[in-house]
Nucleic acid binder design. Structure first.
Length: 892
RNA sequence: GGGCGCUUAGCUCAGCGGGAGAGCGCUUCCCUUACAAGGAAGAUGUCACAGGUUCAAAUCCUGUAGCGCCCA
């Protein structure tokens, strides 16, 4: 071996790993080196992840911790595996959320946004963004996220805004965006329309009030209707009964007199009225209920809006109600009806009430004119893309959720009565004519053509739903509509990593808009990961006080520990219940690795430049190299299949159980021996394996691995951040594995018996072997050093006969005896052997049952049958030897 | 009401056709010069219940119960 051994740092490793200092230093070095940057000129194949842009108002929570850890694992892995990796970062302007934050700040100074006016208010929001908008980016850096930061985008950047305007204009011209007057979900707190998805149904204990509406011209006759929202009766324009309902047939086409209001309202026949519920008659308020709206359309009913934007009763209601809040109006209506003697009864009633997910107050169905996207048309190719597998969901069953929603998709209301966001590029002429254009000049041109002269235009004051711009994210961030090299190279992305909660909000919209404007799906895979819950399985929330703050966890246990914990718990299809002691456990894993590295350092393990893992001769070294190759392949497969728990778990087991517990223990006697050749090979092998571990673990635990890599410099000038993933083909060593497995079993069995017989842990005792094949004797001698050391034996000597009073163990074809005449309890030993025989008998019994089954022999895979036969033979041999051991005891 | 998922060791969960695993916790022993944030050994399961398919079921199918989530 050459002497060009690379020297590590001069000072030895500290006794403990100081995460805080190391994390800050390495992150800064990585970022300064430009290692996170994608290279559009690279000849490597691209690998793209578009980061779901966190809200500009956001700060890092555990859900972010999970999603960005997994994305970073993928990005780091593929970067190492030779891809030109782009992790495109960004932030979302989050219309409602951000506007609310700034409005709340203004409210402390008793100012409303209206006091400031639109422009000044928006300036304020930008000011706020400049001050507080970057927090999440720096928090992501603490997690170790290696996004391509110089490419950071904001949804209100000029480039992205240009894309938004173009999409709006194009869809409008294609007839896929239109204005319509229909019921929307109106949030009276925020005074804006919101989409169906922003509405949450909450179960509320309310009442069902039964009102009697007098029938016009038939004194004494009434129709009873029931309602959970009495105030809406002020806007009633009909009562519906079922056309087949005998009770009311004569009333169809007649009128009721609406109490309080005095309006005559039509009695219509409509199947919406269910004869089975209540009286069978139902009041119809077309302007304030989605079902009633449909009934109203069918019967051409008048639509009377009785609410204003703030949810107060407006001028369309009787004077004494005008200006009342909707809930006050409710009380007043009930009181008046009761006074009129028309309140039949009141029943307590639990029902679903729609709440705005941001404003937190009940939403009102409200008749307004809004902009809509024809989602059904855009959804068709987006459905097909998943049906044909051009985009695949992982786990696959989420595609079902996607289909369910996409096949029943409703028009998407995209206008919001807010100020913070993309203002809709539509201008109105004096007569209300609409001109949709990229900018005011173009709109003026259109108007000039339309009117034949210049006319004053007014821009639509509304802004777009935040998800409208988010839906363009996979291509708007890459420069679209310009034909940039980035757009050409990095679209479509490889995978979108996200939680199931935004499949509708975001994934679906990206699919629709991406396919429509780019002609291809925005990503090949959609990996849907779990939700992070607390250890009891409850959703983390401020109000429950069960939040685990990722930054606190990082401070306490290190970023590596948190990342590893989240990755190893990220099994597909199940939520993560996170408890701090799990993080502690994986922090201990980092410590274990650190100490294994210290051991290597203390034993002068270094990697010669010409070290060839295929050429080692020691069995123990061939074995560990083969195992390293195996785990490297499994880890890569796990990551590529999004089975992060398998990939990380495999590493955990390999590093701790295989490398530390066994390999490092095996090599101690070698390193302390006189055999210079074996020592050199073993030092090199240990260094090589440690180096592979650092590489394989790097995507999961980037900081500690980079720190150790920097310290050892096994390979000069090769920071892990840009290192290649281990390519370890042709290194399996099945013979070495079989041999070492035998060593492990022998040591384990001896240890077990020692513990059971209460042999003092420190005591070294002799061991005899009987009936061993010559090959076994050779192995015993080859591995004597560590067998003696780890089983605490003075030696293993061949014997033709077991001495009396020896504890006997059967491993393979041989029987091993520990002469413990003075300590052995004959009764206990007989029991122990009897138990072992019983266990073997039970297993043999099970196998015989199978082997005597003709169906099994005829139909099972021949390999399975063969394995079963071999197993039986092995067990039978073991059983015989155990029986012989018992017989020997009888002589005592 | 419709859909999806879950039920495996005390706890948290892997496994998803060939005879049950991990981590944590627990018990015993050990400060063996890499590591006590450690080492060694150990105990614990009608794999929710009931049927069915199969030579073979924790694993596939059907139903039941309980829990959770999504959509009306």
């Amino acid at each position: 071996m050459s002497n060009s051994i690379s020297a590590g740092s001069a000072a030895p490793l500290d006794k403990t790993f100081e995460s805080a200092e190391v994390e800050a230093r390495h992150y800064a070095l990585w970022e300064q080196s430009g290692a996170f940057a994608a290279d559009p000129n690279s000849d490597k194949p691209p690998y793209t992840i578009i980061m779901p842009p966190p809200n500009v108002t956001g700060s890092l929570h555990m859900g972010h911790g999970l999603t960005f850890t997994l994305q970073d694992v993928l990005i780091r892995y593929y970067r190492m595996a030779g891809r030109d990796a782009l992790w495109q970062p960004g932030q979302d302007h989050a219309g409602i959320a951000t506007q609310m934050v700034v409005e709340r700040q203004l409210a402390e100074k008793k100012i409303t946004r209206h006091d400031l006016g639109r422009e000044a208010f928006i300036d304020k929001v930008w000011e706020w963004k400049a001050e507080s908008g970057g927090t999440i980016s720096s928090q992501l850096r603490r997690l170790g996220a290696t996004a391509d930061w110089p490419r950071d985008r904001f949804t209100l950047d000029e480039g992205v805004s240009k894309a938004v305007r173009k999409v709006f204009v194009d869809l409008y011209r294609e007839g896929l965006i239109y204005k319509d007057s229909r019921l929307v979900n109106w949030d009276p707190a925020l005074e804006t329309a919101i989409s169906d998805l922003e509405v949450e149904q909450q179960e509320v204990k309310g009442n069902l009030w039964y009102f009697q509406y007098p029938v016009d011209g038939q004194p004494g006759r009434v129709l009873t209707v029931a309602t959970t929202r009495p105030e809406t009766m002020l806007g009633d324009t009909a009562v519906a009964v079922h056309p087949e309902d005998e009770r009311y047939r004569d009333l169809i086409g007649k009128h009721c007199v609406l109490p309080i209001v005095g309006r005559k309202i039509l009695i219509v026949a409509d199947e919406y009225a269910d004869p089975e519920t209540g009286s069978g008659a139902v009041k119809i308020t077309p302007a304030h209920d989605f079902n009633d709206f449909e009934v109203g359309r069918r019967h051409n009913l008048e639509m009377i809006n009785v609410l204003d934007r703030k949810g107060r009763i407006n001028e369309n209601a009787p004077v004494e109600y005008q200006g009342l809040d909707r809930f006050e109006a409710r009380r007043k209506v009930v009181a008046s009806i009761e006074e009129l003697g028309l309140l039949e009864k009141v029943e307590p009633h639990t029902h679903q009430v729609p709440y705005g997910d941001r404003g937190g107050v009940p939403i009102e169905p409200y008749l307004t004119e809004q902009w809509y996207v024809d989602a059904a048309t855009l959804a068709k190719p987006a459905i097909e893309a998943v049906e044909t597998g051009r985009t695949k969901f992982v786990p696959e069953n989420w595609s079902k959720t996607y289909f369910e929603w996409m096949r029943n998709i409703q028009p998407w209301c995209i206008s919001r009565q807010l100020w913070w966001g993309h203002q809709i590029p539509a201008w109105y002429g004096p007569d209300g004519e609409i001109f949709v254009a990229d900018n005011e000049d173009e709109a003026a041109d259109l108007a000039r053509k339309h009117y034949g002269e210049d006319k004053p235009l007014e821009r639509d004051p509304d802004v777009l739903d935040t998800w409208f711009s988010s839906g363009l994210w996979p291509f708007s961030t890459l420069g679209w509509p310009d034909e940039t090299p980035e757009l050409k190279r990095y679209y479509p992305g490889d995978v979108l990593v996200t939680g199931f909660d935004i499949i509708f909000f975001w994934v679906a919209r990206m699919m629709m808009l991406g396919i429509h404007f780019m002609g291809d799906v925005p990503f090949r895979h959609v990996y849907i990961h779990a939700l992070v819950r607390d250890e009891k399985g409850q959703k983390m929330s401020k109000s429950k006080g069960n939040i685990i703050d990722p930054l606190e966890v990082i401070d306490e246990y290190s970023a590596d520990s948190l990342r590893f914990t989240l990755a190893v718990m990220a099994a597909q299809g199940r939520d993560i219940k996170l408890a701090k002691n799990r993080v502690e456990g994986y922090r201990n894993f980092g410590t274990k690795l650190w100490n294994a590295a210290r051991f290597c350092e203390m034993n002068q393990c270094a990697l010669p430049a010409d070290f060839d893992p295929a050429k080692v001769s020691q069995t123990v070294n061939r074995w560990i190299i083969g195992e390293t190759a195996r785990v490297a392949a499994e880890t890569a497969q796990g990551i590529e299949a999004y089975k992060f728990n398998e990939a990380a778990g495999g590493q955990y087991q390999f590093v701790w159980n295989t490398f530390c517990d066994w390999y490092l223990e095996f090599i101690k006697p070698i390193l302390n021996s006189e055999d210079a050749g074996a020592i050199a090979e073993t030092r090199a092998t240990a260094a090589w394996v440690l180096d592979q571990i650092l590489l394989m673990l790097h995507p999961f635990m980037p900081f500690i691995t980079e720190e150790l890599n920097e310290h050892f410099r096994f390979v000069p000038d090769r920071p892990l951040i840009t290192a290649p993933w281990p390519a370890l083909n042709g290194l399996d060593a099945t013979d070495a594995k079989a041999e070492m497995d035998w060593v492990v079993r022998l040591i384990t069995d001896i240890r077990a018996v020692r513990a059971e017989m209460n042999v003092p842990a420190g005591a070294q005792i002799p061991c005899l072997v009987q009936g061993a094949a010559s090959e076994t004797l050779a192995q015993l001698s080859r591995h004597a050093g560590y067998i003696h050391r780890l089983a605490r034996l003075t030696g293993v000597d061949a014997a033709t006969e077991m001495p009396k009073g020896a504890v006997q163990i059967v491993v393979g074809e041989a029987t091993y005896g520990l002469p413990l005449a003075d300590v052995i309890d004959i009764g206990a030993e007989r029991d122990r052997l009897a138990k072992a025989i019983e266990k073997a008998d039970k297993e043999i019994g099970g196998i015989d049952k199978r082997l005597s089954n003709p169906g099994f022999l005829a139909k099972a895979d021949p390999a399975v049958v063969e394995d079963t036969r071999e197993k039986r033979q092995e067990l039978a041999g073991q059983r015989d030897k155990l029986t012989a051991a018992v017989a020997r005891l009888a002589d005592l």
